[in-house]
Nucleic acid binder design. Structure first.
Lengths: 346, 346
DNA sequence: CTGTTAGCGCATTCAA
DNA sequence: TTGAATGCGCTAACAG
């Protein structure tokens, strides 16, 4: 296989415990490092015989190019895109990440995953760690009160995309859900069949998505002349303990005939609180969830994969055209009637 | 702030569009690069005044150390651990990843996420890309028929951990579920209350987890004298279309009185096929799933976070003691009775 | 078609 | 306490 004998000082062999480098391969193949580089990266043309020798050496030494070194050369950045999720326990973000990963993979980019655990103080640290790794781009679910600290990085040309929640103090591409319109559509459907006493159970009001959904809920009720909705709104939970809020709102004097749950966790809590066969109560949930179809749970749904795909597309477009105007993309949502939301008031 | 004027040839300033390097900071602070390095990495001692000057320069230039370069220095490897999932659409892997991420984060490691989409041919390519990035360790859900290609990397000292499925042709740490015991426990519980005609619906038999679960099912039935179980087994779907298999097995002449579903997808399919109120059929599912409690679905459950934590721990232990004997960790599973699995045969 | 030189950004010698 | 030289593995620029 190897026509020329390896140089006597070749320090690394197939059984070496040290990782082989370009130079090792070059030595074994009897060529220069640059030629090995040419073969490995498949640039330039290399004589077939030389190529064969190099390839044999690569195989023998199990050479694997070091991307770190490659990327370091001439300020290039890595092939990875950083994704900073919020609460890592929410399947929502993983599906979003899955959609992104799939899209990025198509163009040879990989995804680094980190989470802020929805701790505002953690955001800058986590993001900083990704930037130190020189990620090619950054996709962030903002949780800190301010993202101005990213402005410098953006001006350096790193594509930054905010998803699910808009950033503060930073002007970048965003991909958000049609929160307001979706919630309004759900309530419109309920009022159309006669409901007026409609409750809303969602996350604390300072979270963007919840604020928007609540606004949509109020808008739709205002359209049918219901303006005083405060005592039907429950957004004071800690974001998890929705069951108490649901129990509370359903057992008040002027009990609602319908409920809009502001997210998938609230929907699950509703089912836990009232069971799966409450035919006297209408309900619609924001976010689709597994088995909602089996349970006849009407929801405001959207394509999570599409959400991720759009975020990835933003990244790719920005890499392509760094100076294009920033975009604010809305992921469409639609009402999926499955029974629970089409019941008229008793 | 800066006591000494910056050298006249300082090419980079705060508003520069070029990323500042150690040298830039050194120039601005009027010290050597090494001193900046000392301050940034907080090694060695630096005079307070010098430190202050350097820190001011770091802030002004918004210097961010380049981990790629740092890691390149003397063969060091990155701070990232690669996780190669199987089917990215399965929430199972994401929960596993979440558990790992949390644990790794505690020691300053980040996680790179990639998926094989359960395509055997993709595994080596995906893994190779991670190794080219010089990940510190590798956690893989094996899908290819053979993992011997990883032996060289393992011998180079990269910790490799296989999760959910064992590797072939490679001796490394593994973290697996108690598949066989879990399935057997579920069937034992069913036979104890009188069931004998028990069906099994799972993935194609060549997948390790399914093979084990099927074996546990057979063992438990053999214990009560039922040996001919073939016509109650359905493992010929494509891994997704379980509904047809369920419909088929329930409508055969000698219909089963109970069903064991081999994974979360099969459980969902069962609910879709028979509805949520089949009180004449007993069923237990392998894998817990969201709302199973509300639906009264008895399952063989395990702590997904713990699974991820154990995998991460394997990585950390191996980094710590590269030559310790390999371990085969089993994640305990337990039967969670919720009603559907405790119904005696009609 | 192939080799030489230089340098990416940083940290590890070793000196001062 | 600080600095100068050197090299990690790779590739761009320029020979030959």
């Amino acid at each position: 296989m190897v026509t020329r004998p390896p140089a006597d000082d070749a320090p690394r062999t197939a059984s070496s415990t040290v990782r082989a480098t370009l130079a090792d391969v070059a030595r074994l193949a009897g060529v220069s490092a640059k030629t090995v580089s040419r073969v490995v990266t498949d640039t330039d043309t290399v004589a077939p015989a030389t190529r064969a020798r190099v390839e044999a050496a690569v195989a023998e030494l199990r050479f694997r190019p070091n991307f770190l070194a490659r990327d370091l050369r001439h300020g290039a950045v890595s092939k990875t895109v950083g994704f900073v999720m919020g609460d890592i326990t929410n399947p929502f973000y993983f599906e979003l990440g899955a959609g992104m990963e799939r899209e990025l993979h198509r163009v040879g980019l990989t995804m680094v995953l980190t989470a802020t655990e929805d701790d505002p103080a953690a955001e800058e640290r986590v993001v900083g760690s990704l930037l130190a790794q020189r990620v090619r781009a950054l996709v962030v679910v903002p949780i800190a009160g301010d993202q101005a600290y990213l402005e410098h990085e953006r001006s350096l040309g790193t594509p930054i995309v905010c998803v699910d929640r808009p950033p503060t103090g930073l002007h970048v591409d965003t991909v958000l859900l049609q929160n307001r319109a979706g919630a309004a559509a759900a309530v419109d459907a309920l009022t159309a069949i006669g409901h007026r006493r409609i409750a809303y159970v969602g996350s604390p009001g300072d979270l963007y998505t919840n604020r928007e959904r609540l606004a949509g809920y109020r808008e739709a009720l205002a359209r049918v002349g219901v303006h005083d909705t405060a005592h039907w709104e429950r957004t004071d939970g800690d974001g998890r303990d929705f069951e108490a809020a649901i129990h509370d709102v359903l057992h008040q004097a002027d009990a609602p005939t319908a409920v809009l749950t502001g997210n998938n966790r609230a929907s699950a809590a509703l089912l836990r609180a009232v069971g799966t066969d409450r035919s006297d109560l209408a309900y619609v949930g924001f976010d689709d969830f597994d088995l909602a179809d089996v349970l006849g749970f009407s929801v405001v749904a959207y394509d999570m994969r599409e959400f991720g795909r759009l975020a990835a597309q933003c990244v790719l477009d920005r890499l392509d055209q760094p100076d294009a105007p920033t975009r604010a993309i809305e992921v469409p949502v639609h009402l999926v009637p499955r029974g629970s939301g089409e019941r008229p008031p008793a």
